[in-house]
Design a protein around this nucleic acid. Structure first.
Ligand SMILES: Nc1ncnc2c1ncn2[C@@H]1O[C@H](COP(=O)(O)OP(=O)(O)O)[C@@H](O)[C@H]1O
Length: 431
DNA sequence: TATCCACCGGAAGCCTTGGGGG
DNA sequence: CCCCCAAGGCTTCCGGTGGATA
């Protein structure tokens, strides 16, 4: 976690003002944060949670009446100042009257859930429960097996017995909803009604700005009580971030200002993604070092950008489920055979052919289309529906990755048996 | 301008997998 | 040991549709 987060001061201030009330026993409103990847949603949220927990721990041990008396040991001063600013903005310097302290104050606990991995109701709820349970405790919830009502009541027990204010971060919550529906969110937004000792407050993070519109209206108003958008960084902001981070981490003297600016400019084009910017800089530095190059030049930066993208694609391809691999394989073979663009029908036929040769179950048209949808989401192919008027409609597909290289990658394992088998090109429609 | 092709893609339901509890 | 249940992978069913053509 970086020491500071340039160009997120405003967002941090806003969040601090909402969340700081947790220190005087209130339950902060639920919050939704939106923004593209790499706009700092996760770091900012995690950092604030850490700060709150830190303050809360001190408060828990010492029961100060005034916020200004709480001095944390490790917290960076800028962050401490942000919290203090929020406190004075809200005029809540005096946290508690002496007598009521023990009645009102609840320790703040934060739970971070990445919904990309925890993408079912069962997993999310058990994960929350288990974060409140010691690792070797015997009543941790199992990864599967229990009926949901059992999970639900055990979760309630865990929450209530922790006797605290629990802030749950649901990162990539849009993925969870698109995959498993909003039932979990419904449960979580209403869970306070079933608790007597504890309170739950939610912080959702979404890439999709219109995420709330997919929700049940009751969930919508609760989860979206406070909304905040993290806008993409521009090139100048990215440059500041890179500068700040490279001073912390890399080899300061070897990186000159032009290279940083260049990385920033490239990443600015990619939706202002700070992660991308940092990756490009880091990888190009590694490449230059490997070459014993005294200077980190633009050439390395461009190479790094290519390498990062290629690594990502190869990684994704390698971890694809078998049938999905075979569908991609078919599309790439068609491309190699001259079909830059092809159609669903042709893909399905080629695929079936290959699947038969491999003695795999041959999936039907519908499922192949689903798998093509997956490939599209992953950015490996591009598909779009076009109409031939009287002659019906179809989806035209185009591979988005270099065929030879990716085919090579796919030629591991079972698919290697398909080496050298060309697809048959039957249709001669042109687009 | 109404038709109608040939496929799209949502919804629901089926079957299987795998762990838990009684 | 048997039955319960969530989830994943897949099929079945079917209403929907953009636009060239009659
Ligand atoms: N303002 C910033 N200053 C320094 N580093 C940042 C800043 N914003 C993002 N980063 C870094 O960029 C990367 C991606 O940020 P992250 O919070 O994961 O983005 P998001 O959650 O929006 O996709 C992280 O490594 C983070 O440390």
């Amino acid at each position: 976690m970086p020491d500071s987060l340039p160009h997120r001061e405003e967002e941090i201030r806003t969040l601090a003002r909402i969340l700081i009330t947790s220190l005087k026993g209130d339950t902060p409103s639920n919050i939704m944060i939106y923004g593209m990847t790499g706009t700092g949603k996760t770091v900012v949220s995690k950092l604030l949670m850490k700060a709150l927990q830190d303050k809360s721990e001190i408060l828990e041990n010492q029961y100060f009446s005034f916020f200004m008396d709480i001095h944390s040991t490790f917290m960076p001063t800028w962050l401490d100042n942000a919290l203090r600013e929020a406190v004075s903005f809200l005029g809540i310097e005096e946290l508690f009257g002496r007598e009521v302290i023990r009645d009102i104050f609840k320790p703040v606990k934060c739970i971070y859930i990445n919904c990309q991995q925890m993408d079912t109701q069962y997993r999310v709820l058990t994960q929350i429960a288990n974060r409140l349970t010691p690792f070797n405790d015997e009543d941790r919830l199992p990864v599967s097996g229990l009926p949901m009502d059992e999970v639900h009541s055990r979760l309630l027990g865990k929450l209530d017995s922790s006797d605290s204010l629990i802030i749950i971060i649901l990162d990539e919550v849009d993925r969870l909803v698109f995959k498993s529906g909003d039932d979990v969110l419904y449960t979580l937004t209403r869970i306070n009604e079933e608790l007597s000792n504890s309170r739950v407050s939610l912080l959702g993070i979404s890439n999709n700005l219109h995420f709330l519109e997919y929700l049940d209206s009751r969930v919508k108003s609760s989860l979206g009580a406070e909304e905040l958008v993290f806008h993409p960084y521009n090139a100048n902001q990215l440059r500041d971030i890179l500068k700040q981070r490279s001073e912390e981490a890399f080899y300061p003297e070897a990186i000159d200002y032009d290279v940083i600016s260049y990385c920033a400019a490239l990443a600015a084009q990619e939706n202002g993604d700070a992660r991308k910017a940092l990756d490009i800089l880091r990888v190009s530095a590694e490449m230059a070092e490997r070459d014993h190059s005294p200077k980190l030049s633009d050439i390395y930066v461009r190479q790094a950008q290519k390498k990062i993208e290629m690594d990502r694609v190869n990684q994704v391809v390698r971890t694809l489920p078998l049938q999905t691999k075979l569908v991609l394989y078919s599309i790439l073979q068609l491309k190699l055979g001259g079909r830059i663009k092809t159609t669903t029908k042709e893909v399905v036929e080629t695929y079936s052919n290959y699947a038969q040769r491999l003695d795999l179950t041959v999936l039907g048209r519908r499922q192949v289309v689903n798998l093509m949808g997956e490939l599209d989401k992953l950015g490996l192919i591009q598909s779009k529906v076009i109409s031939f008027g009287r002659h019906g409609r179809t989806t035209v597909v185009e591979a988005n990755v270099p065929s030879t290289e990716i085919l090579n990658n796919l030629h591991n394992g079972i698919l290697s048996r398909l080496k050298g088998i060309r697809p048959r090109l039957i249709y001669n429609t042109s687009f």
